[in-house]
Design a protein around this nucleic acid. Structure first.
Length: 502
RNA sequence: GCCCCCAUCGUCUAGUGGCCUAGGAUACCGGCUUUUCAUGCCGGCGACAGGGGUUCGAGUCCCCUUGGGGGUGCCA
């Protein structure tokens, strides 16, 4: 066990097999909080021992999204550190050295069964007794026999000889979890391609990188006993373990990338699964962090809004819950709305620009001043996607305006083209307006309402549809000022032609 | 099949034997504000999985059942 005088060192160890999953983000967050709270060290380690599943570019994507979230690392890729390399694929010599140590000590042995043979054994075992445990050969193959087999070109793996005693994992979230000796099997620690398996690499790296706390998902709970056995065999200390609840979809299924493909096939909008999905969809990192922090953790008081700093202050491993959580996007949306209203403008502006950039939106060309005005004009928006929907019309050519048929029907054509008629009158007035700013425009609209003895909506909506093509835009004075007089008049005239056409 | 973990409103959760006629948030429903969409404000609906114990007293402790999740990979 690490002593209290040791500096806290935690790690997040993603595999470069795709984008950063939202569950992975929470794992990173909790580890990050443990490190920051204790003034410790956050290590990022890349578990790239599975060559078959390696996805090109995914590392950069993971790093990029982590940075976007504001979750930094002290050691790891692009940060360096004294315990590198931080890519497991570059640590083969190290693993081999410890592998040999185990082999020499008789705590691991070569095994020669092929995957096909094992499959067959599993099948038979399943039929006969329901479960399969690798039967330890007696006597164990010698090192010489193993090496001979390798020279003959046979596929050879290394298995860990499990001890004949119960193992208790002390989990700081779940309590003690004991597995009896008869439940262990001699699992593989080195694949036939020479790469270590996850278990072995993880244990060696955690020890060598002086990791003191291992916070990971509950799906790893059963692995812990293997890891503890390995630690004993190698003479390594056991870190403090904490197995966190798992995050699921609302319907109880796993949040998986495949949900996206399924939804698309079914003609539905793909759900956000990876951090990047949320980023693209116009969510704020502050909202995401705040939301996932509360999935499986709480302070016990009624506060729900937390900045990263506040989370760091309030966080404690002891208050992580045991119950699996379901990911409720509606609640996230509410968090996002709150954060959009709360975030300091310069920061919000930065986030908006990121959204525009990764979506390659026309508003990329807008100045900061304009963007800031849009942010203010749309106050109360839920996501950047909503904001974009509301102001997108400002950034398209007048010729490209498309009038939503439903909006035209409801706002302009209804009641014997009442809307068109009002729009026509408005055009004349607007044409004559000299001072093209918000308040004179609003005065003009108000005056028109009075003279026509009608409600605001009856005047504002026709204009809105004419200039934006839809029923939704910022307040009408703001909308027209933002658009400019020329474009406003052009669009209204274009819209009026619709009436003639109908 | 076997092993392990978990169990409070639809959802996230508070609750560590009396403060619980179970609190907050979100969703939903209703009302108000509003030129659209949002926002905002007010109100309402809504849970201790079931059964046994222990105790003066149980959401809180124990057991069983049920339900959910995980593991049982030359994936991590």
């Amino acid at each position: 066990m690490p002593t209290s005088s040791e500096i806290v060192r935690v790690r997040f160890a993603p595999s470069p097999t795709g984008y950063l999953h939202i569950g992975g983000a929470r794992t990173m967050l909790f580890n990050w909080l443990v490190a920051r709270k204790a003034g410790g060290c956050m290590v990022l380690r890349i578990e790239d021992t599975d060559q078959a599943r390696h996805v090109e570019d995914s590392l950069q994507k993971i790093l990029d999204d982590l940075r976007w979230l504001g979750l930094t690392w002290d050691e790891g890729p692009e940060a360096g550190g004294d315990y590198g390399p931080y890519f497991q694929s570059q640590r083969l010599d190290i693993y081999n050295q410890y592998m040999q140590q185990l082999l020499d000590a008789g705590q691991a042995y070569y095994a020669m069964e092929s995957p096909q043979e094992l499959d067959r054994m599993r099948e038979i075992a399943k039929k006969e007794q329901g479960g399969f445990r690798y039967p330890r050969p007696d006597p164990l193959p010698t090192i010489e026999q193993g090496q001979l087999a390798m020279r003959e070109g046979r596929k050879v793996v290394v298995r860990c000889k499990m001890p004949d005693e119960d193992i208790t994992v002390h989990d700081s979230i779940l309590g003690d979890v004991t597995l009896t000796a008869d439940q262990f099997e001699d699992f593989i620690i080195q694949k036939s391609d020479g790469f270590p398996t996850y278990h072995f690499a993880c244990v060696v790296d955690d020890a060598l990188m002086k990791i003191t706390h291992v916070l990971r998902g509950q799906e790893h709970l059963m692995n812990s006993h293997k890891h503890v056995a390995l630690q004993h065999a190698l003479g390594f200390p056991t870190p403090i373990y904490g197995h966190m609840p798992v995050i699921f979809n609302l319907d109880g299924s796993k949040m998986s990338k495949r949900d996206k493909e399924k939804a698309i096939k079914a003609g539905l909008a793909p759900p956000e699964i990876e951090v990047h999905d949320f980023r693209t969809a116009g969510f704020l990192p502050e909202a995401i962090l705040n939301f996932i922090a509360l999935l499986g953790w709480s302070t016990g008081d009624d506060q729900e809004a937390y900045t990263l700093d506040e989370l760091t202050q309030a966080f404690s491993m002891e208050r992580i819950g045991k119950t699996n959580a379901k990911f409720d996007r509606a609640k996230l949306l509410s968090f996002n709305t709150d954060w959009a209203a709360r975030l300091p403008e310069p920061l919000l502006l930065e986030r908006l620009k990121d959204y525009a950039t990764i979506n390659n939106l026309p508003i990329c060309s807008a100045t900061d001043d304009l963007l800031l005005r849009l942010l203010q004009a749309c106050a109360g928006f839920r996501t950047f996607a909503d904001l974009q929907k509301k102001i997108g019309f400002l950034f398209i050519e007048d010729e490209a305006i498309e009038f939503d048929p439903k909006a035209v029907k409801k706002v302009l054509a209804k009641n014997d083209n009442a809307g068109f008629s009002i729009l026509n009158q408005t055009l004349t007035k607007l044409d004559a307006l000299e001072d093209w700013t918000k308040s004179p425009i609003e005065d003009l609209v108000n005056d028109l309402c009075e003279s026509l003895d009608t409600k605001m909506g009856n005047v504002a909506q026709p204009i809105r549809v004419a200039v934006s093509g839809s029923t939704v835009s910022p307040p009408i004075g703001e909308t027209l000022e933002l658009l400019g007089k020329d474009k406003t008049l052009i669009r209204i005239r274009k819209c009026l032609k619709l009436h003639v056409a109908v």
